[in-house]
């Protein structure tokens, strides 16, 4: 498991039915690109977060296929339509098989 991987997600606490809200996500991850070499000259193997997805009450909102050119501490900003009260689930998949998740509830205003 990559070290110290912490997700951080910003979702408004409430929204009107049908409102479009902005969601921001950040996750601390070194995103080892596979381009760097260690002290002995050996290539440090790629180890990145390769996919991110956001779902709401089981329906997909947004997802990203990441390559090594996404900056460390991957940041995404995107929008979601809120049809009802519920939960946003955020999932990050790591090359090493780890899966990081976060959940944020939203109410209807």
């Amino acid at each position: 498991m990559a070290e110290n991987v912490t997700p951080r997600v910003r979702v408004p606490r409430s929204a009107a039915v049908g409102e479009v809200i902005t969601i921001k996500t950040l996750i601390s991850h070194i995103m080892e690109s596979g381009q760097r070499r260690d002290g002995d000259g050996n290539t440090i193997p790629r180890s990145i977060i390769n996919t991110f997805s956001c779902d709401f009450n089981g329906q997909n909102v947004f997802s990203v296929d990441l390559k090594a050119a996404v900056s460390a501490n991957p940041y995404f900003e995107f929008s979601a339509t809120v049809p009802e009260a519920g939960e946003f689930t955020f999932t990050w998949n790591d090359d090493d098989g780890s899966v990081y998740t976060d959940v944020k509830a939203i109410e209807i205003a």
């Binding site: 912490t6 951080r8 910003r10 921001k24 601390s28 501490n73």
Partner: peptide, 12 residues
Amino acid sequence: DFDNPGMLAVDA
């Protein structure tokens, strides 16, 4: 504060 990646450190 959300855009600032330094805040990840503050959280930790």
